[in-house]
Amino acid sequence: MSILNKLPGGVRYSSHKEWQILKKLPKWWLLGTLVFVAPLLYTWQQQGDLLTQNLERTSMFIGLLFTFWFFIGAMMIGLIVIIIMKGPGYVADPYFLPKEDKSLENPPPR
């Protein structure tokens, strides 16, 4: 038996939007990161220190940046799952159950 056994007669669905969106994700990640980092870089360039002044603003933009990264990562995982699910079907190795003990099916009444 090989590791991956394709299901005979399995249907493979054509890809549609998932590959188009997956190819655009790096560009979206870069542009979104620049949007959230630009105010921090501007503040750092003007004032020289991000932690002593505008701590709330710095924390907000860092939180938004991490939230955006999480959203992009979740979207990427979801698209990869869709691509895998549209691929060919695979058959698992058979697992034969041990002999059943018929006396356990109907226990005696109490």
Rank of each mutant, 00 (worst) to 15 (best):
Gln46Asn: 06
Leu51Met: 08
Ile21Tyr: 10
Ser103Thr: 01
Glu18Ser: 04
Val37Cys: 11
Phe61Trp: 05
Leu34Ala: 01
Val35Pro: 00
Gln45Tyr: 07
Ile72Leu: 11
Ile77Lys: 12
Gln47Ala: 14
Leu30Ile: 13
Thr67Tyr: 07
Leu31Trp: 13
Glu18Leu: 03
Val91Met: 03
Pro39Gly: 04
Gly87Asp: 03
Ile62Tyr: 00
Phe70Ser: 10
Leu65Ser: 07
Ile80Ser: 09
Ala38Gln: 08
Leu25Asn: 04
Val81Met: 10
Phe61Tyr: 15
Val81Asp: 07
Val91Glu: 09
Val81Ile: 12
Trp44Leu: 14
Tyr13Pro: 07
Leu64Lys: 06
Ser15Lys: 08
Lys23Trp: 05
Ala92Cys: 13
Leu51Ile: 02
Asp49Phe: 07
Ser59Glu: 15
Lys86Pro: 00
Gln20Ala: 13
Met1Val: 04
Leu104Cys: 03
Pro108Asn: 08
Tyr13Ile: 14
Leu41Glu: 06
Leu40Ser: 01
Val91Asp: 06
Asp101His: 06
Gly9Val: 07
Phe70Met: 13
Ile62Thr: 02
Asp93Gly: 11
Leu7Ser: 03
Ser14Phe: 01
Ser14Tyr: 04
Phe36Gln: 05
Pro109Ile: 12
Trp69Pro: 00
Lys86Val: 09
Phe70Ile: 11
Ile62Met: 00
Leu34His: 06
Pro107Lys: 06
Arg12Ile: 15
Pro108Lys: 13
Asp49Ser: 11
Val35Thr: 12
Phe68Thr: 02
Phe70Leu: 10
Trp19Thr: 15
Leu55Asp: 00
Gly9Glu: 08
Gln45Lys: 00
Ile83Tyr: 04
